[in-house]
Design a protein around this nucleic acid. Structure first.
Lengths: 221, 221
DNA sequence: GCTTGTGAAGACCTTCACAGCA
DNA sequence: TGCTGTGAAGGTCTTCACAAGC
């Protein structure tokens, strides 16, 4: 490949977070198209699939560079590679897991992480009965060793798989250890300082944001 | 495909969707406060906990009514009840599950749904080897019976727990059956017509939206 | 002809700031 | 005095519309 002049120019204020949230979706769809043998795609077509306007796709991409060819569209394979590089998805990410109960074990056995470059390389728990056991190739370590492991291995991502009441404490601990991104499975609105990203995996919350739209003509005050 | 790309639908009363997304969070925090014995809370304090501005909380609530007392704040118990009613979270919701493989069984055994009023009352699969088996009190039905069950029982919510390649087909089927809200566990950007809400539970996507912020001073032209 | 990239316009959401009331 | 509720201001994001280029 030629020029590596992909400008991740965080302008004044940087790239809007909504844009960063959409790019992985674009990558997904593009990958699916590539698997179908599609070589070129227009913003029009992409927009139809993703149900967003073509202008939005073009504007989103324009934050990072110029990837298309006028009159033709985007080369699917090329755009995937560019976007993956921009998002840091062209590399391996080591991840730590805290909480090896029901939820944590489900995380460890989830087959979707590794193919996308996310590898759980250490697991921690506070429960003496679990510590030392081997779960999915990993020996469960005491949470006290979290800091050391995170720093030694330069890990930036943590997964919280403990029950709700313990989750904020675990988040604090991960933040203290230097983690900069947290995937939280606990049903709480975890707080983290600026500079630490938190994303929640919370099916109940997801359902709760939809029921509003299911209400018919009900009571009115 | 025609460009009828409508992107903004206002819910009942024209409430912004972002607001609807936040209210369940408010309910969570309020419930936690109530459990701690807090009776009254100000938008200031709520904002500190949720890390949003007090003005946003007050504005959000103002879409639905006037729930506070000037000079005092909000009665926690009262506000929870009001918000739950507004969001339709003061009632029971019956839900159907499609896909009773690894993912689907995890959904069935997840203990978090029922306490919040979401009850999986029927489970479907296309695999003959699974159909007829009993999983978590439910007899797995053939997907062919989906329409009938959804219509008969007036079900509005469906959960998609099938592998990615089958997910869109299942979404279409749920939509056809009349479901108006879909919780999708498959790693795809599922498409549904206007009027049908889709929320994704997708840990990989969540991770992929954070790595961007973990990139240091790397390649730069 | 067709599609990108992009200033400008517009829509939407958030924050401000203060009147009003307990 | 303290805090809500809200019109208005301010920002941010989305969409438009068109010049440029394949």
């Amino acid at each position: 490949m030629a020029g590596r002049s992909v400008a991740r120019q965080a302008g004044p204020g940087g790239v809007p977070e909504v844009v960063v949230m959409r790019l992985p979706q674009y990558i997904r769809v593009l990958s699916s198209l590539m698997a179908q043998g599609v070589n070129i795609v227009s913003s029009q077509r992409l927009g139809e699939i993703l149900q967003v306007t073509p202008a939005q796709i073009r504007k989103d991409l324009s934050y990072f560079g110029r990837f298309g060819k006028q009159g033709r569209g985007y080369r699917v394979r090329h755009l995937i590679m560019e976007l993956k590089e921009i998002m840091g998805l062209d590399r391996r990410w080591n991840v730590v897991l805290v909480g090896v109960g029901r939820l944590g074990r489900a995380v460890l056995s989830y087959p979707g992480f590794a193919p996308e470059g996310f590898h759980v390389v250490a697991a921690f728990d506070a429960d003496r009965r679990i510590i030392g056991r081997t779960v999915g190739n990993l020996k469960v370590q005491p949470v006290e060793e979290l800091d050391e492991t995170v720093m030694e291995r330069g890990i930036g991502i943590g997964i919280v798989g403990v029950p709700g009441p313990h989750a904020q404490g675990v988040v604090d601990r991960l933040v203290g250890a230097g983690v900069k991104a947290i995937l939280n499975y606990a049903p709480i609105a975890a707080q983290a300082p600026d500079g630490v990203k938190v994303r929640n995996v919370d099916p109940v919350l997801a359902l709760q944001t939809m029921t509003f739209y299911l209400l018919g003509e009900d009571d009115e005050a």
